[in-house]
Simulated assay, not measured.
Amino acid sequence: MQILIASPYPLDSPKGNSITALRIERLLKQAGHQASAVHGTLPAGADAMIALHATKTYPLSAAFKKQHPGKPLILYLTGTDLYRDLLEKKPDCLNAMEQADILVVSQPASLSSIPEQYQQKSRVVRASIMLPQLEDVSPPPQPSFALVAHLRPVKNPFLLNRALEQLHALPLHAYTLGSALDEKMIEEAHSWQAKDPRFRWLDNVPYPQALSWISQVTATINSSHLEGGANAVGESIILGTPVLASKIEGNLGMLGDDYAGYFTPDDPGSLAAIIRRVIEEPEFLQLLRQQIHARQACFSPAIETQGWLDCLTASQALNPRPSGK
């Protein structure tokens, strides 16, 4: 099959959706399909489309359905779709979900956020992690913590800094890896860096270097208000690095209900307390490492590939109209 994977962002963007689109392209090619990740324009001649981000790729997915009414459209719902746009009843999000043959989420916890009328056509395809060759970086001093996320409000990137204020006497090193999307975020990142010599904002670190940071810090941090399933969490798991994560649906789905490394969302005191435990309680850090290693099998490329192949088969069965050539 000729399969398009529509990304809401340019394919050379460091954003998670672009990385995901290229990963799916690679998996489907390895499975024997002619897969192409695309952004902005709709090539002719496709047999199916996988669209990432209901709202932002709606014009492209709508064009695909108009041109190919009998061909499968699979919609990969992001955290923004599920936990913001759907709740706000944004028309493009709702229309995209209505026209799709299959709705996909990256972990089971997100299924409960899909409206009842779409449950029958909803599936879980667990995202796998395919790591490139890591690039060496100087090992950070220990103990160290890294928040790997672009500076966007939904990522709550400065919760780490608010937590550090409550740990002023504790020797540690903290880093944020990710670009700022507006001037206000840049100013705030510089302000926090000036206040606390333990903190450094590294801006947009190249992906192989960011992975090397993840592999070497004591723990990574995911402080998001909402999340469908962050690539950085999966990368931490595969690299064996504990994650300190806000207890939200997307993180629960990736790390498991019984994971010990959760903190209360948007609560700097809760994050500060768990950072302190990691530093002062070796047995707690060891528990997190054991739990992280136990999750690694969930991120197998073979499992993800089979998930997409099953979705393509199911979408054809749910929508058996003649494709028309």
Rank of each mutant, 00 (worst) to 15 (best):
R295C: 10
T305M: 13
N156P: 01
Q107L: 00
R277E: 06
K29S: 09
D257S: 13
S7N: 13
R198N: 06
V125Y: 05
L77A: 06
A96M: 09
I24Q: 12
D85S: 11
L4T: 10
P171M: 05
G240Y: 07
Q316P: 00
D196Y: 10
S215I: 02
G324E: 13
P171Y: 10
Y76F: 15
I238S: 01
K65Q: 12
N231Q: 11
D258C: 00
C298R: 13
H225E: 11
P282R: 05
V124N: 04
G32S: 09
E88A: 14
R26S: 15
L312T: 12
F284R: 10
N319P: 04
M97W: 02
A245E: 07
Q316R: 15
A210D: 13
C311D: 12
H293Y: 08
I279E: 05
P139I: 04
S215N: 14
I248N: 08
P43L: 08
E116L: 11
P242H: 05
P91Y: 08
R276P: 02
Q133K: 14
E281A: 11
T218W: 11
L252I: 14
F145S: 01
Q296K: 15
G45D: 09
G16P: 14
I238F: 01
Y118R: 00
W201M: 05
D266K: 13
R84V: 13
A62S: 15
K71M: 11
L170M: 14
D182S: 09
A21M: 05
E25Y: 11
T78G: 06
Q67A: 15
V278A: 04
